[in-house]
Design a protein around this nucleic acid. Sequence first.
DNA 1: CTCGGAATTGGAATTGTTCTAATTTCCGCC
DNA 2: GGCGGAAATTAGAACAATTCCAATTCCGAG
Lengths: 129, 129
Amino acid sequence: MPSEIGGLKMTRQRWETYRLLMNHRDHPTANEVFIRLKEKLPNVSLATVYNCLEALVQHGIVRQVNFDREPSRFCPNLAEHGHFHDQRSGSIRDIAFKPGINLADVLDLPEGTVINDVELTLRGELPQS
Amino acid sequence: MPSEIGGLKMTRQRWETYRLLMNHRDHPTANEVFIRLKEKLPNVSLATVYNCLEALVQHGIVRQVNFDREPSRFCPNLAEHGHFHDQRSGSIRDIAFKPGINLADVLDLPEGTVINDVELTLRGELPQS
DNA sequence: CTCGGAATTGGAATTGTTCTAATTTCCGCC
DNA sequence: GGCGGAAATTAGAACAATTCCAATTCCGAG
């Protein structure tokens, strides 16, 4: 276990939370993380899961993704990207921008606007593959 | 009062809710709508406000806007646009796409994807004007 | 006018998240 | 190796936005 990531001191719980997100990148909710984490750390509490996720989000190590008012989901993909919720399967999939596209370039923002955070979510149906 | 809008039968409460959103387009929360609506309809209940907003959203007459896990806000601007939350003033402002830009064109989506809904939110600082 | 379905209402219930206070762990220093 | 203070973790209570529920009111067709 590294002693820190991105300036955040790693503890057992933070590290396992992070590893879990990196390992299956299926955008789990806090509660899903909690359930999975208990296999590794049987005494972990839900409060700790929230604490760890918040710490990771604050340090820019993972991103928090919100679909409407559903429970927040967590994503370790740090590249600028959106999220597509497939209404057929219920799954959530990362959506990249086309090469060379910068979101700020396609928006009609006043000169000098500072963007600190962007969230792009889509809902629809992916083609039956 | 029209008898219906977009297929939704208008009632006194739905109509006043809609008018209120159209009149000051400052992205109020359900609770803010409730407080304002009481001036016109003193006996209105918060449950009704939620019902009316839901009916309007379902019929595509207004849009529901979510910033993280904050209370939902409501917006009668139906054009495809994003929302910018100015961290300095706390205000929310509609952001149009640059002319000719279609969001689906800049995203790397599989051929045949159907998009039913898009939500784009930004957070940052608008220039001091 | 009257009946039936839809809308509205107030309050209770639900749910994801945050807070609190108590305990445990971590880490530099003796 | 033990000690002390700070930070992290824990369990459970609290909270806030929203939804549900049962009772009442409204509205339009006949």
